[in-house]
Computed example of a mutant assay.
Amino acid sequence: MDTKHTNPSGPLPGNLHDLLPDLEKLYTDIHSHPELSMQEIRTAGLAADRLRAAGYEVTTGVGKTGVVGLLRNGSGPTVMLRADMDALPVEEATGVPYASKVKATDPEGKTVPVMHACGHDMHVTWLVGATNLLAQTRGTWKGTLMAVFQPAEETAAGAQAMIDDGLFKRFPKPDVVLGQHVMVGPAGNVAGRTGVITSAADSLQIRLFGRGAHGSMPQASIDPVVMAAATVMRLQTIVAREVSPTEAAVVTVGALQAGTKENVIPDEAIVKLNVRTFDEGVRKRVLAAITRIVNAEAAASGAPKPPEITPLDRYALVTNDAGATAKALEAFRQYFPAERIRQTGPASASEDFGSFGAE
Results as ranks from 00 to 15, higher is better:
Thr3Gly: 02
Leu19Lys: 05
Leu20Phe: 12
Leu20Trp: 10
Glu24Ser: 11
His31Lys: 00
Leu36Asn: 12
Leu46Cys: 03
Asp49Asn: 06
Leu51Val: 15
Gly55Phe: 04
Gly55Val: 11
Lys64Ser: 07
Gly76His: 10
Pro77Lys: 15
Leu81Met: 07
Leu81Val: 07
Asp86Ser: 04
Glu91Ala: 09
Tyr98Thr: 04
Ala99His: 06
Gly109Phe: 00
Met122Ile: 02
Leu133Ser: 06
Leu134Met: 13
Ala135Thr: 04
Lys142His: 12
Glu154Tyr: 12
Ala156Ile: 03
Gly158Thr: 03
Ala159Cys: 11
Gly166Thr: 08
Asp175Leu: 10
His181Val: 08
His181Trp: 03
Gly185Leu: 07
Gly195Glu: 12
Ala200Arg: 15
Ala213Lys: 11
Ala220Asn: 07
Ser221Ile: 09
Ser221Asn: 07
Gln236Val: 00
Ile238Arg: 04
Val243Gln: 01
Ala248Phe: 07
Ala249Lys: 03
Val250Met: 11
Leu256Asp: 00
Leu256Ala: 00
Gln257Gly: 03
Ala258Asp: 04
Gly259Thr: 05
Thr260His: 10
Asp267Ile: 01
Asp279Ser: 08
Gly281Ala: 13
Arg283Pro: 04
Val294Glu: 02
Ala296Gly: 08
Ala303Asn: 12
Asp313Asn: 14
Lys327Glu: 14
Pro337Ala: 14
Arg340Asn: 15
Arg340Thr: 04
Pro346Lys: 09
Asp352Met: 07
Gly354Asp: 09
Ser355Cys: 11
Ser355Trp: 06
Ala358Ser: 09
